[in-house]
C-alpha cells in the first residue's frame, strides 16, 4: 500500500527530472523509462510467471537510446578520443543505433508503442579524458550485458528472446573491446558474466539523468535482493 501512496504522478513517470522523482521511480522499481512498471510486475511474476515482453523491451529501449544518441556521441564530439579508442567507440555507437532500432521494431511487432526516453546528460567528469570515458563506458557496457542477462530469462516470446540474444552478444563484445583499450589482461576475463537487477541498472544510469552521483535506489547490492530489502 505504501507503494501506491508513493507512486509519482504520471508526468514524472514520463520524464523524471528531479532527484526526488527518480528516487520515487527507483524506489518503486519502475524503469527509468516512461511508464514502465517492469520491476513492480516482477514481484508478482515470481508467483504468476507473467511479465510482459513489451515491458521488458520498453525498459531496455531508453538505455539504448541513451547510449546511441547521448553517451557515445558526446564522447565522439568531445575530442578526447584518438586512434583505436575512437574507432571502438564509434563502432559501439553505431551498434547501439542498430540495437535501439531493433528494440523499437520488436515493440511495434508486438503491437506496442516505443516509450519516449527520459532526458539524459553526460557529466563533465566522464568527458574529462579518454581514460575517464573508457572507464565509464565499461560500466555502461557491463550494465547492458547485465540487464540483458537479468531480463532474458523473463522473456516469453522465443523470437524476442532470439533478438535479445543477438543484441546481448554484441554488448558482450563491446565489454571486451573496451577492456582491451583499458589495458585489462586478458580482456576476455569473465567465464560467467553476471546478471543485474533492474535497480542495479537504474543505479548505473542515475548519474546520467541529472543526478550528480548515484543516490539511494538501493545501491550496488547483490543481484536479486535490492528491491526486496527496501520494504
Amino acid at each position: 500500500m505504501r507503494r501506491e501512496a508513493e507512486k509519482p504522478e504520471v508526468g514524472a513517470l514520463a520524464r523524471p527530472r528531479t532527484r526526488r522523482e527518480i528516487m520515487k521511480l527507483a524506489a518503486l522499481g519502475l524503469g527509468a523509462a516512461a511508464g514502465t512498471s517492469l520491476f513492480a510486475k516482477k514481484a508478482s511474476a515470481q508467483t504468476t510467471g507473467v511479465v510482459s515482453d513489451l515491458d521488458i523491451l520498453n525498459f531496455l529501449l531508453p538505455n539504448e537510446i541513451f547510449e546511441s544518441q547521448v553517451f557515445y556521441p558526446a564522447a565522439l564530439d568531445a575530442g578526447i578520443l584518438s586512434g583505436a579508442a575512437y574507432d571502438v567507440v564509434a563502432q559501439i555507437q553505431e551498434i547501439e543505433v542498430v540495437h535501439a532500432a531493433a528494440l523499437a521494431d520488436a515493440i511495434v511487432s508486438l503491437g506496442g508503442t516505443p516509450v519516449e526516453a527520459p532526458e539524459f546528460m553526460v557529466p563533465e567528469a566522464v568527458l574529462a579524458s579518454q581514460q575517464a570515458f573508457l572507464e565509464a563506458a565499461l560500466v555502461q557496457e557491463q550494465k547492458d550485458v547485465g540487464a540483458n542477462l537479468g531480463l532474458g530469462p523473463m522473456i516469453q516470446s522465443p523470437d524476442i528472446l532470439a533478438a535479445a540474444g543477438a543484441i546481448n552478444g554484441a554488448e558482450a563484445e563491446n565489454v571486451t573491446a573496451i577492456k582491451n583499450l583499458l589495458g585489462v589482461v586478458p580482456p576476455a576475463n569473465e567465464p560467467f558474466p553476471a546478471a543485474l537487477t533492474q535497480d542495479e541498472v537504474l543505479a548505473i544510469l542515475a548519474p546520467y539523468m541529472g543526478m550528480g552521483s548515484m543516490m539511494e535506489t538501493g545501491g550496488p547490492a547483490p543481484a536479486g535482493g535490492v528491491g526486496d530489502k527496501r520494504y
Binding site: 571502438v88 542477462l149 543477438a166 554484441a170 554488448e171 563484445e173 573491446a177 582491451n180 580482456p187
Partner: peptide, 26 residues
Amino acid sequence: HAAECQHWDAIKILNGVSPPNNVALE
C-alpha cells in the same frame, strides 16, 4: 553465450582486427 562472445572478441583482438567489436547483432 555472453562469455563466448567475449572470447570471439578477444580472438579478433589477437588477430589484429580493429575495431574488434564489429558485429551489431550476433
